[in-house]
Design a binder for these strands. Structure first.
Length: 274
DNA sequence: CGGGCGGCCTGGAGGC
DNA sequence: TGCCTCCAGGCCGCCC
């Protein structure tokens, strides 16, 4: 489900609804998510706390609470975080729910259980093992062709896996890497050792353009992405190559191909991408 | 040592 | 209809 745009859309949809509310209780139905939940710590860090701010780092949603605690939510592949009235019946795979003083609950549904929920001290986030090795935010001022070129020094392998490496640049998953490579006209299998500075610039700009437009469109809803209010995104109608195998390229008319790289589907246009 | 791949899970889609 | 296989937006650890 979620790459950077989806998590950002979720964050923005929660901003006006969640800030200032207070967590009165945490209900944990399933402990076995990607990492076993630390129930005692979640209760200790969250119960009675007020929500101060909502931030995002890579694909992690950061919910800053008072008393210097931060609740971290990662949606994995199938996670969905929604805000509903407390009277709303529990849904299947609703593993964790945060009950709020306003009479609502923030609930995490995640059928595949690749998601993750944990809490830590706000001022030690950067040092936490989930965050310590993360690379640059693609929508931050420090990102650009030069940053990519520098990170590529001495590296080999296909540019697609390079751009999906969170130690290089964060938030870019299988959909948006395919779209950005198409916008930039770069073949996914091109070696990072054979990319010129001009190409790095095009790739950086393409990434920023694709991610920004996806956020503006409310994210990509292929199967089940929705924001905190259950609203689906519509960037899927703008996808140029992802999930379009055997369909014509909208730019040049050639047939979109699908290959498997590193166990993941890779969609590209053989006419536009070299 | 960097890169590739399997494994973690469930559900939906499509083939027979 | 039912059963089987394949596939899925992420990420980590193991392997070469």
């Amino acid at each position: 489900m979620p790459e950077l745009p989806e998590v950002e859309v979720l964050r923005r949809s929660l901003l006006s609804r969640l800030i200032g509310d207070r967590i009165t209780g945490v209900a944990i139905r399933t402990r076995a998510l990607r990492e076993p939940l630390d129930i005692a710590r979640l209760l200790r860090d969250c119960e009675g706390r007020r929500v101060l701010d909502l931030r995002r780092r890579a694909k992690y949603l950061l919910i800053d609470l008072d008393a210097g605690r931060t609740l971290v939510v990662h949606l994995g592949m199938s996670g969905r975080l929604t805000l509903v009235p407390s009277t709303e019946p529990e849904e299947p795979h609703e593993h964790v729910a945060f009950h709020l003083a306003s009479g609502r609950r923030l609930r995490l549904r995640d059928p595949r259980r690749f998601g993750h929920v944990f809490s830590l001290s706000t001022d030690t986030i950067e040092a936490d093992r989930h965050f310590a090795r993360l690379g640059v935010e693609p929508l931050s001022p420090g990102f650009g062709g030069a940053a990519l070129a520098a990170a590529a020094m001495g590296r080999r392998g296909p540019v697609k896996s390079f751009l999906m490496d969170a130690a290089v640049v964060v938030g870019v998953g299988n959909i948006y890497v395919a779209e950005a490579l198409h916008v930039a006209g770069v073949h996914p299998e091109r070696s990072v050792a054979r990319i010129s500075d001009a190409r790095w610039d095009r790739l950086a700009e393409a990434l920023q353009q694709v991610l920004t437009r996806a956020i503006e469109a409310g994210g990509t809803t292929l199967n089940d992405f929705a924001d905190a209010a259950g609203q689906a995104g519509y960037f899927q109608v703008s996808l140029a190559v992802y999930d379009r195998e055997r369909e014509p390229c909208l730019s040049c008319g050639r047939t979109i191909l699908r290959r498997i790289h590193a166990g993941r589907s890779t969609y590209y246009c053989p006419g536009c991408q070299h």
